[in-house]
C-alpha cells in the first residue's frame, strides 16, 4: 500500500528533518550564487557608506579652496566639485541616504500594497469598496502637488517623513493587481481547506495568499527601490527631501549630469554606485523569487547544492 517511489532528489539522505518554510527558503536563497553575490554587495555598500567617512580625511560639507574641479587624486579620491567639495565624501554621504530611502520605500510601499490589496480582495464587501475608493482617490491626486503643499508643514522634520510620503504614493497600482489576484486565489481549494480548518482570515492572508503572489511583490519591490531613489531627486527641486548641503546619489547625479562629458568624476562615481545598488537588489530579488517558488528547477538545484555543502 505504501507508495515507495523514490522522487529522485538528493542521494540517500535518511535524516528526518522537517524544516519550516522560513528555514527552507533561506537555505534555498543561500544556495543561489547570484543572490549571495547581490546580498554581499548590498552589505558591502552599507558598510562602505557608513565606515568610510569615519576614516576619510574630508567631510562632505568641507570645501577645499585650493582645488576647484580637480580630477581624482591621492588627496581627493574622486576629485572635487566647482566649489571645492570632496566628491568621495559626498558620494558616501549620498549612498547612505539613497540606500536607506530606496530600500525603505520599496519595502514599505510593497507591504502596504500587499496588505491593502489582499484585504480588499479577501474580505470583499464594504472593506473592498472603501479600500478601493482610497486607492482611486490617491491615484487621481497629483502626488507632486500634494507633497509640495504639505512640505512646509514638515520642513525641518526628519527625512523619515519624506520616506513615508514617497511610499504613500507608490503602492496603489500594485494594490489593485494584488486585489485581482486575491479574488482568484480566494476560490482555490487550498484556501478553502485552510478556512474549513478554522484558520483565522488574517492568517490565511499572510500564510497562503501573500506567499502565492511573492513573485509579483518581489518584482514590484525591486523596481520601486530604483524608482524611489530617482524620484527623490525630482522632489528635491521642490525644496523638499534631501536638501543642500546634504546630498543623495540622486542630487549628485542631477548636479553632475550637465558636465558629464568634461568632468566625468562629478557624475560617473555616483551613477556607478546607483547602478551597482539597483543591480544587486535585483539579484537578491530574483534569488528570493526562485527560493520561494517551489516548482522552480533552479531553486531545487540550489537547494540540493545548499544541502550538499551543509554535510
Amino acid at each position: 500500500m505504501t507508495a515507495s517511489t523514490d522522487l529522485g532528489t538528493g542521494a540517500g539522505e535518511q535524516v528526518i528533518d522537517q524544516p519550516r518554510r522560513g528555514a527552507l527558503v533561506l537555505r534555498r536563497l543561500l544556495g543561489n550564487r547570484l543572490a549571495v553575490v547581490g546580498l554581499g554587495v548590498i552589505v558591502a555598500l552599507f558598510v562602505l557608506a557608513y565606515t568610510a567617512p569615519l576614516v576619510y580625511h574630508w567631510d562632505y560639507e568641507e570645501l577645499d579652496y585650493t582645488a576647484f574641479l580637480a580630477a581624482p587624486s591621492a588627496d581627493h579620491w574622486f576629485g572635487t566639485t566647482q566649489v571645492g567639495g570632496d566628491v568621495f565624501a559626498q558620494t558616501m554621504r549620498g549612498l547612505q541616504k539613497s540606500l536607506v530611502i530606496g530600500l525603505l520605500v520599496g519595502v514599505i510601499s510593497t507591504a502596504v500594497a500587499a496588505v491593502v490589496g489582499a484585504a480588499a480582495g479577501y474580505f470583499g464587501g464594504w472593506v473592498d469598496r472603501s479600500l478601493m475608493w482610497l486607492v482611486d482617490l490617491l491615484l487621481v491626486l497629483p502626488s507632486f502637488l500634494v507633497i509640495a503643499i504639505v512640505s512646509p508643514t514638515f520642513r525641518g522634520q526628519t527625512w523619515l517623513v519624506f520616506v513615508l510620503l514617497l511610499a504613500l504614493f507608490a503602492w496603489m497600482i500594485t494594490a489593485r493587481i494584488v486585489r485581482g489576484m486575491t479574488l482568484t486565489l480566494r476560490e482555490r481549494e487550498f484556501v478553502k481547506a485552510a478556512r474549513f480548518m478554522g484558520v483565522p482570515p488574517w492568517k490565511i492572508i499572510f500564510r497562503h495568499i501573500v506567499p502565492n503572489m511573492s513573485s509579483l511583490l518581489i518584482i514590484d519591490a525591486t523596481i520601486t527601490v530604483g524608482t524611489a531613489i530617482l524620484a527623490e531627486t525630482g522632489l528635491s527641486f521642490f525644496g523638499f527631501g534631501v536638501q543642500p548641503p546634504d546630498v543623495s546619489l540622486g542630487s549628485l547625479i542631477a548636479a553632475g549630469v550637465d558636465s558629464a562629458q568634461t568632468f566625468p568624476w562629478l557624475f560617473g562615481f555616483s551613477a556607478g554606485f546607483l547602478i551597482l545598488a539597483v543591480l544587486s537588489v535585483n539579484l537578491v530579488g530574483d534569488g528570493l523569487r526562485d527560493a520561494l517558488d517551489a516548482g522552480s528547477v533552479r531553486s531545487r538545484r540550489a537547494d540540493r547544492r545548499a544541502r550538499g555543502s551543509a554535510t
Binding site: 524544516p19 487550498f190 485552510a194 506567499p211 517551489a294 516548482g295
Partner: peptide
Amino acid sequence: VASLDPRMP
C-alpha cells in the same frame, strides 16, 4: 493539485 498550497513544504 489545487488543494495544497504550492508554496508550502
